[in-house]
């Protein structure tokens, strides 16, 4: 019996067509081994960092540093979620850049871009579906990261012999963690979208991964030198990414010394949260708009 294909009615709405492509993109990411590997890496980092901090907190030193108390607090249950989000914001950003850049860039590497573009209603929908599906997996990764961080906190609390006291879990605490979850995603966005943009510009996953991660690590080094220079140069970092990311990470309720994100807080004055939201938002929008513009305008050749 011959089965006739009956492609969906072309009068369908924007959203129904987009839904199909998102479904296809999620299927691809779900089946891709790299997605699971990245999640395992994130889990591994959170587990290792927690165990290392536990080991450090248990070492008996002749003259313990000022931060040893902060480390012990960091392993406590109240800091479990903000600490996990702090790790997600730093290491998770790197993994998210790899996920999104390879999702977009490998379409060029594998030459599947042409096969699948002609199977999608529009380039806009194709790219939107890629972003949304990668976003879904990044959110899943963040939730897993928080869950693993909390479980590790339970384990380190048990191993460390600390008290299991859940009195901190008030409504306002949970609301603060909920807000910090979305703030963490927000601070990751510029790096994610930069990786996305560069994988489109470079027609490969590598430019996206290299640029996204490169900016993530190099910018903090460069801005340190800018701060040291003083004058108007010292104010430039306020309009770059790192200082604004740190400003929003500092809103997390982490022990002293860790407020500016994992690795310690900045000794410099950070921009205001409003400034940080606006600056990071502008960067994200510019990277996003450029990505869509270039993808739409450019010929897709071999």
């Amino acid at each position: 019996m011959v089965t006739k294909a009956t492609p969906a009615d072309h009068t369908e709405t924007l959203y129904s067509g987009l839904g199909r492509i998102i479904n296809a993109e999620i299927f691809k990411l779900r089946k891709r081994p790299m997605t699971r590997i990245l999640l395992v890496i994130l889990a591994g980092i959170i587990i290792i960092v927690n165990l290392l901090l536990l080991a450090i907190s248990k070492v008996t030193l002749p003259s313990p540093g000022e931060q040893i108390g902060s480390i012990q607090n960091l392993l406590g249950l109240p800091a479990a979620i903000p600490f996990a989000l702090s790790l997600v914001s730093s290491f998770g950003s790197v993994l998210a850049v790899i996920l999104i850049a390879s999702s977009a860039g490998n379409e060029y590497n594998w030459r599947t871009i042409r096969t699948f573009i002609v199977s999608c209603e529009s380039r806009f929908k194709f790219l939107t579906a890629k972003l949304i599906s990668a976003g879904v997996f990044i959110l899943i990764g963040m939730i897993c990261g928080v869950a693993i961080g909390f479980i590790m906190s339970l384990i380190t609390t048990a191993i460390g012999g600390y008290a299991f006291d859940f009195s901190f879990a008030t409504g306002s605490y949970l609301w603060a963690q909920f807000l910090q979850f979305w703030r963490t995603l927000y601070v990751m966005l510029p790096f994610i979208l930069l990786g996305f943009l560069m994988s489109i510009v470079g027609r490969s996953a590598m430019p996206g991964i290299a640029t996204g991660i490169g900016v993530f690590f190099l910018e903090s080094i460069i801005t340190t030198f800018m701060r040291l220079a003083g004058g108007w140069i010292a104010r430039i970092p306020d309009y770059l990414l790192t200082a604004n990311v740190n400003a929003l990470n500092a809103l997390a309720d982490l022990p002293r010394g860790f407020q500016g994100g994992f690795g310690g807080s900045s000794t410099q004055a950070l921009p205001s949260p409003a400034h940080a939201y606006i600056t990071l938002g502008i960067y994200s929008l510019v990277f996003l708009a450029l990505g869509f513009y270039i993808f739409r305008k450019r010929d897709i050749t071999g």
Binding site: T3, P7, E12, G17, I21, F27, F116, S119
Partner: peptide, 16 residues
């Protein structure tokens, strides 16, 4: 994946 993108294509059609 192609069938999902295009829409309206059954598994029977893929097999065929």
């Amino acid at each position: 994946v192609l069938a999902k993108s295009i829409g309206g294509i059954s598994e029977n059609r893929i097999a065929e």
